[in-house]
């Protein structure tokens, strides 16, 4: 551990402020609590909100897992793990079941998380209404008044134009019937995992200086019309080329030379686990 820095890099005052914001976020599910986002040795937009939450929560008893687009080995995930390791000496893992804190970008693991685990999501744009309203003071008022008509209209226009809702990720959802929330750029495939989950979800947006949360067993409903139900991505007829799974979120891999398209699990840890089971 680098002794030139405080444990977990941030000073204790910064941690306390982030902790207070996290507690308020848990008390008001889906509401974006403002906080004084700190400078980190990593550019804003590269997961600083998630990192600040991780650094404020983590302690010597924790086991950390970091994933980026489902992968434990991507540059973002590896560097965040190294950084947290340098300033905490916390053990890291790629095993989803062993982790107590999982920091993630763009995916929720395939294995259902338990009540003892906390999933921290990195969020680039926390405001679900930003696509329909650019002004922060107006979106704040819209949340206060639960005025979500423009968002519903956008969904309706998408249906009229394209016969389907065309939002692929950051698909908005309602939390406990009160707040519209951006679930971060997870694919629609992962939205149902937020509903009545056993684990605590914390969302950190470093650049936008917001923290929000979904406590365990909280109602999270993706936006849909009565006659047009919510639909997640379908991978019918496709399986993972490595483990053969047919019920996971699949990445498409295109071979430019042969023109062949193959699919493989986005959650590398889960894919590895399935292959290990099969090899036994």
């Amino acid at each position: 551990m680098n002794k030139n820095y405080n444990f977990a890099f941030l000073d204790e005052g910064s941690k306390r402020e982030i902790r207070r914001a996290a507690l308020k976020a848990v008390a008001i599910p889906g509401y974006q609590v403002p906080f004084g986002s700190r400078e980190l040795p990593i550019g804003r937009g590269w997961g600083t909100g998630g990192i600040q939450l991780t650094l404020s929560l983590i302690g010597p008893d924790d086991m950390l897992k970091v994933i980026d687009q489902g992968s434990d080995e991507s540059v973002n995930a590896v560097n965040i793990k190294k950084f947290v390791g340098l300033c905490t000496d916390i053990e890291t893992t790629t095993d989803t079941r062993k982790a107590t804190i999982i920091q993630t970008r763009h995916r929720i693991p395939e294995i259902p998380l338990t009540n003892e685990q906390i999933l921290i999501l990195q969020v680039p744009i926390p405001e679900p209404l930003r696509v329909v309203e650019a002004r922060e003071e107006v979106t704040k008022k819209m949340h206060a008044e639960k005025d979500y008509a423009p968002m519903w209209l956008q969904l309706y226009e998408s249906l009229v134009k394209y016969k389907r809702v065309t939002i692929a990720s950051e698909y908005p959802c309602m939390v406990e019937g009160r707040y519209m929330m951006n679930p971060s750029p997870i694919p629609k495939f992962d939205n149902p995992k937020l509903h009545k989950a056993e684990c605590l979800y914390l969302f950190g947006a470093g650049r936008e200086k917001k923290i929000y949360a979904v406590p365990p067993y909280t109602e999270v409903v993706s936006l849909a019309f009565d006659d047009i139900p919510f639909e997640k991505e379908s991978f019918t007829g496709k399986i993972c080329r490595l483990c053969g799974s047919a019920d996971t979120y699949l990445d498409e891999v295109f071979d430019a030379q042969t023109g062949e398209r193959v699919y493989q699990c986005s959650d590398t840890s889960y894919c590895q686990e399935v292959r290990s089971r099969a090899a036994r």
């Binding site: 405080n6 444990f7 902790r19 507690l23 848990v26 302690g59 605590l200 949360a213 406590p215």
Partner: peptide, 19 residues
Amino acid sequence: DSVFDSQKMFRLILEAMAN
């Protein structure tokens, strides 16, 4: 300990708030 005991206390408070 303002670093390690605070962290453990906070996690207990967070656990109680989330559950």
